[in-house]
Simulated scan of single mutants.
Amino acid sequence: MSSKKISLADWQQQLGGQSTPKPTTPTVDGLVYSTDSGRIDTPKAEKSTGQTFADGFLRLKRETKGRSGKGVITIAGIAEPEEKLAEIAALLKKKCGCGGAVKDGIIEIQGDKREVIQQELTKLGYKHKWSGG
């Protein structure tokens, strides 16, 4: 039994001129996969995760609720992408010598380091005010 090898285009033409199905994933310039980098997805636009307040000030707040009595300073109002918030949080954690996190666009710094946080945010060019207790 001998089988003749034919190209994909010739095979599709023999089947009745059916064209190849369109890719279902979003593409960049019609490319779906590259041997250099793998699957090619459309670039996603950066979105800011934090919310800003109407007066343009950041809100610094000392909270203990839901944390077994342990206090944290929360910083809200920075309308920056998640990566920038993480950089700011890392800088503040290093300056304060404590831990912290970024959750839902709000930076949390463990402990009560009000003066250090105020100084660093002023150096970064942010206007801030204390809210709450």
Results as ranks from 00 to 15, higher is better:
D29H: 10
D29S: 12
G30I: 06
G30K: 00
V32F: 02
V32T: 09
V32I: 06
V32K: 04
Y33N: 01
S34T: 05
S34P: 03
S34N: 07
T35M: 11
T35W: 14
D36G: 07
S37L: 15
G38P: 04
R39Q: 14
R39V: 15
R39K: 15
I40A: 01
I40F: 10
D41T: 12
D41H: 12
D41Q: 13
T42G: 05
T42M: 09
T42I: 14
K44I: 14
A45F: 11
A45D: 12
E46M: 06
K47S: 13
K47H: 10
T49I: 07
G50L: 03
T52L: 11
A54M: 08
G56Y: 00
R59F: 05
L60K: 02
K61S: 11
K61R: 13
R62A: 14
R62M: 12
R62K: 13
E63S: 15
T64D: 13
K65N: 02
K65L: 15
R67D: 13
R67N: 11
K70H: 15
G71K: 15
V72G: 05
V72E: 12
I75K: 10
I75E: 15
I75G: 10
A76M: 09
I78N: 00
I78Q: 00
I78H: 00
E80S: 08
E82L: 07
E82M: 08
E83T: 15
E83P: 03
K84R: 05
K84V: 11
A86M: 08
A86I: 09
A86G: 09
E87N: 01
I88P: 00
L91H: 06
L92G: 07
K93R: 05
K93E: 03
K93Y: 02
K93H: 07
K94W: 06
K94L: 11
K95V: 02
K95I: 03
K95N: 04
C96D: 07
C96S: 08
C96P: 09
C96H: 03
G97E: 04
C98T: 13
G99K: 05
G100Q: 05
A101V: 13
A101D: 04
K103S: 14
G105H: 04
I106F: 04
I107T: 00
